[in-house]
């Protein structure tokens, strides 16, 4: 499903070269989940960005969704993200000008999925009755659950989650994580989850510690 071999990523910042990855290799089979751990600045977000084509890399080989992605044009990357890769950030996953239902419908519509069942997704995530609210009218946990509903509604094969519970309290984080894992098992999607919350990382099938450049 996803394999990375000898990945090298450098950042040039004010004359200095920072090597974030220096020959990183790992792989995940379809339907499994992988936890990316490591302290702040260890490259979790950078790796997720590389895996969805929002960031380039310098050396190495990345295969995902049965494709060799080296040299994949940007538009092809965009098409992959549109239909096959769901991304969840720590916060601000929703368009603030649209209601929760409209957000879910927009994401599903972009992925070419039916927009009929969006209400169901929100309901299943415990957001019944909040469909017509705007993102700033619900709590942070509800926003993250709505973000999950958006990802679920687009039916992706690969989900990249960057500290999806990072700004939530323990209890809320737990319910959000529950929903994510339940769905992942159900549809047999592949999940890469960056977090520095160790209990959460333990719930994944595999783990990759980026501390000190794996």
């Amino acid at each position: 499903m996803l394999s990375v071999t000898g990945l090298v990523k450098r950042f040039e910042s004010s004359g200095d070269t920072v090597r974030v990855f220096d020959g990183l290799s790992f792989s995940i089979a379809a339907g499994r989940s992988l936890a990316l751990t490591g302290p702040s600045g260890s490259g979790k977000s950078t790796l997720l960005n590389i895996l969805c084509g929002l960031e380039s890399f310098d050396e190495g080989n990345v295969r995902l969704l049965e494709r060799e992605v080296d040299g994949l044009p940007r538009d092809a990357w965009a098409d992959l993200r549109r239909r096959h890769i769901g991304v969840v950030f720590q916060d601000s996953n929703l368009m603030p000008t649209m209601t929760l239902a409209e957000n879910v419908r927009l994401r599903a519509g972009l992925a070419g999925r039916s927009t009929e069942g969006t209400g169901d997704w929100l309901e299943r995530l415990g957001l019944a009755g909040l469909e017509q609210r705007y993102p700033d009218q619900v709590s942070g946990g509800q926003r993250q659950r709505a973000a999950l509903a958006m990802v679920f509604a687009m039916e992706p094969e690969l989900v990249l989650a960057d500290e999806p519970t990072g700004s939530l309290d323990r209890q809320t984080a737990h319910t959000v994580a529950d929903a994510l894992f339940r769905w992942q098992r159900e549809v047999n999607a592949t999940l890469v989850l960056a977090t520095h919350d160790l209990p959460l990382a333990d719930r994944c099938d595999d783990g990759l510690d980026l501390a000190g450049g794996a």
């Binding site: 965009a78 549109r82 239909r83 603030p96 992925a111």
Partner: peptide, 14 residues
């Protein structure tokens, strides 16, 4: 700018 970035994440071509 973030929301335009979100659109890019959601797969809108340039």
């Amino acid at each position: 700018r973030w929301y335009v970035h979100l659109l890019a994440v959601w797969g809108l071509r340039r």
